[in-house]
Amino acid sequence: MTRRTPLAVVAAVALGAGLALAGCSADSGPELKVSGAFMPQPVDDMAAGFLTVENDGDGADRLTSVTSTISDDVTIHETKNQKMQEVKSFDIPAGGKLDLERGGNHIMFMALKQQPKQGDTVSIELHFEKSDPIKVELPVRETTHNPQKH
């Protein structure tokens, strides 16, 4: 009968635990990318921003805030029953997407520090619960711009 030293037993347990944990880490987490970003040219000191955040990962995430140098008051809004209201966050499901679009959920910029014109770009940064922030350039389009979804 072979007698194992306590060190050998601890090493075997640690190795087994490491292998078990490695097998559990198949969840790659959220993998976010942004597309379709734009801002209609504002007609007063407020503006809206629209974009799509796609999540190709295995884990869900949440958009928690947006920041920009164009305004110190940037919020995210949902539209329900033709009424908009500020929300704390938007869910981005694993393998799904978050659409911020005209007539629906969107980004609001209040008390603009400058008036962007068609052809300009506005820099924003999206902040998430789990993922690193993503910097996005919003091209400023004509006031009535409304891309068609395919």
Rank of each mutant, 00 (worst) to 15 (best):
G103T: 04
F50R: 09
S65G: 10
M110T: 12
Q114E: 14
L51V: 07
T69C: 01
Q118E: 15
E78R: 15
F90S: 07
K83G: 12
T69I: 07
G59I: 04
G96H: 09
T52I: 14
Q85S: 14
K88A: 14
E101F: 04
T64R: 03
K135M: 05
D120K: 02
V53F: 06
D72Y: 05
A48G: 13
E137K: 09
G49E: 02
E78S: 15
I134G: 03
V66L: 09
P93I: 14
H77K: 14
D58W: 01
N55K: 04
E125C: 04
E125K: 11
E54G: 11
Q82Y: 15
D45I: 03
S89F: 13
D132A: 14
R141Y: 13
T64A: 03
S131R: 06
T121C: 07
T69F: 04
G49I: 01
S71A: 01
S89V: 06
D73F: 07
D91E: 14
K97Y: 15
V140A: 05
F128E: 00
A111T: 09
D56C: 00
T121L: 05
F90Q: 08
Q118P: 06
A47K: 03
G119F: 06
T75H: 05
E129Y: 10
G104Y: 13
M46P: 00
V74R: 00
H127T: 05
V140W: 01
Q82T: 14
T52H: 12
G119T: 08
D56W: 09
T69D: 11
Q85R: 10
L138K: 04
F90N: 09
K113Q: 09
R141T: 15
I70T: 02
A60W: 11
I124C: 11
E78Q: 15
G57D: 00
L98Q: 10
I92R: 07
I70F: 04
K130R: 13
G59P: 05
K83H: 14
G104R: 14
S68M: 12
S123R: 10
